[in-house]
Amino acid sequence: MSRPSILRTIGWLWFLASLVVLAIGFREAIFLVPTDAAQGDAGRIFYYHVPSSMLSLIFPYINFLASLAYLYWRRRDPLKALTSDALALTAAEVTVVYATICLVTGSIWGRATWGIWWTWDPRLTSMLLLWLLYVSYLMLRRFSSAGQSQTLAAVLSVFAAVDVPIVYMSIRWWRTQHPAPVFGGGPDSGLDPSMMPAFVWNIIAWGMWGIFILGFRFALERRRQLAEQDAALSAIEASLETAQ
């Protein structure tokens, strides 16, 4: 069995397993977890909001490491640099997807629970900043006309990664509107045992889905890069033939 066929089979199996775990997570969150006494059924938004929020702070580091690898390899080994660049782009897109979900579901939950869609709370503001940084990263890559757009984007991603620990620590440094940390927030933090299965299934499910979509998008970007390389080689060969 060839390597592409093995990767395709793994991709399909991972995709199907993700769907199964997502279905289990949905069932746990909607039908099995008891209704929250304080928040009512709006509290079930937590099971999609928190996993997406946590994952939106992990994918930026893939973008960050891939960008550092790109900056390291770009003069030493351009083929490795191209692979790193594809991974950086993919991780930035997935970050935007998860951060969008975090912001929108958080806003919907806030309207149901606090009575407001938005407040300039440090956690919300730093998360919005994170989203804007990765959207600007993608726009820079999309619209920059300079030949250095990959390098500029890689440098931007190094600065964008600085916001990630600020988002994480914001609810520890400043106690304002956003709820206190659920995990690692001191002796009063933690989840009720009845909420644990739904939370664990959903964090696994959205993590698996994130890895799948990251791999799929990366494969597409590599395919696009290879097509561009082949087109460039064909153009060079054609120009050499014309010169002869």
Partner: peptide
């Protein structure tokens, strides 16, 4: 009810974006 509308809207958002 508002809480059910918001719950459905949040889950629909996730489905639409992903």
């Amino acid at each position: 009810t508002l809480e059910h509308r918001h719950l459905l809207a949040a889950y629909a958002t996730v489905l639409i974006v992903q």
